[in-house]
């Protein structure tokens, strides 16, 4: 018995990065581990006998977070969630908690609550998400080159989601800019396999339905070679090796008034 108590104490206080808290059936704190002290700043003496609600935000207290936690924990045997908690100094941190009912079914004792400070993980996850959004934004830029000429530089790898987003952006821009020609620059695409060619063709077809013709530019010789070897056909789509040549072709296609070039010089 003595031994079991020691093992139990060791478990309660050996984990310093987790707050281990024992609650009675009403949610009052009965045991307070060393980790709980480190995370929340309260000593055991300060919180024993108090309701778990002192660690919750006022909003959560009003909404009855603890009863909700206990109810789902009792119903499913375990409850896991993340949310804001408040330390002794009033500082909020993002916590991941697991609430497990303990005791025998016929002799229910209370709840075991294990919490972790996930503030840093959450911040990292959020900044990662922001970076992802930014990259997504950057990955489908449509630039207006001339009156009715758009450029769509494609960089990196294409998958179906990205192609769809890219197509949506392009079509929207065709409509707002009343563009008649799209120069799709693929010099930033490292490899074009059958799948990627299919994606590009779909985008080109959709642009065509909106009344815009597409000129491919920047197709590298080795890419062109492998496309031919793969049997990828671009049909009637025009292709130029450089953006410069593609733009020249665009002007000659009669959709743009080239006379503007000679005296305006800048963007129209």
């Amino acid at each position: 018995m003595e031994n079991k108590q020691n093992v139990y104490r060791g478990m309660m206080n050996g984990v310093s990065d987790r707050a281990v808290i024992l609650l009675d059936r009403d949610g009052n704190i009965r045991e307070w581990s060393r980790g709980a002290e480190l995370i929340y700043g309260y000593s055991a003496g300060e919180v024993l006998g108090k309701h778990i609600g002192i660690l919750h935000t006022p909003e959560d207290v009003t909404e009855g977070l603890s009863s909700r936690e206990f109810a789902s924990s009792s119903a499913s045997g375990c409850f896991e969630a993340e949310g804001w908690r408040v330390t002794k100094s009033g500082k909020r941190f993002w916590s991941g908690v697991v609430v497990t009912p303990f005791g025998e079914p016929d002799a229910f004792v209370g709840f075991l609550k294990v919490g972790r400070d996930l503030t840093r993980e959450r911040e990292r996850e959020q900044s990662l998400q922001r970076a992802r959004d930014e990259i997504r934004e950057l990955s489908t830029p449509v630039i207006r080159l001339w009156d009715n000429i758009l450029a769509l530089p494609i960089i990196g790898t294409l998958d179906s989601m990205r192609t769809l987003r890219l197509t949506e952006n392009l079509l929207e821009k065709i409509r707002t800019e009343e563009a008649g020609i799209v120069i799709m620059d693929i010099s930033g695409v490292s490899a074009i396999d059958t799948q990627v060619a299919q994606y590009l063709l779909k985008t080109i077809q959709a642009a065509r339905l909106m009344g815009a013709d597409t000129i491919l530019s920047g197709l590298r010789p080795e890419t062109a070679q492998s496309m031919v070897q793969l049997g990828i056909e671009l049909g009637k789509i025009k292709s130029r090796s450089t953006l410069h040549d593609a733009l020249k072709l665009a002007f000659s296609m009669g959709h743009a008034d080239v006379s503007d070039l000679s005296f305006s010089g800048g963007a129209p």
Partner: peptide
Amino acid sequence: IQPAVAITLVELGVRF
């Protein structure tokens, strides 16, 4: 032809 319609037509494999 609206953007969404153009995408649908291409996805349906409709070739005009």
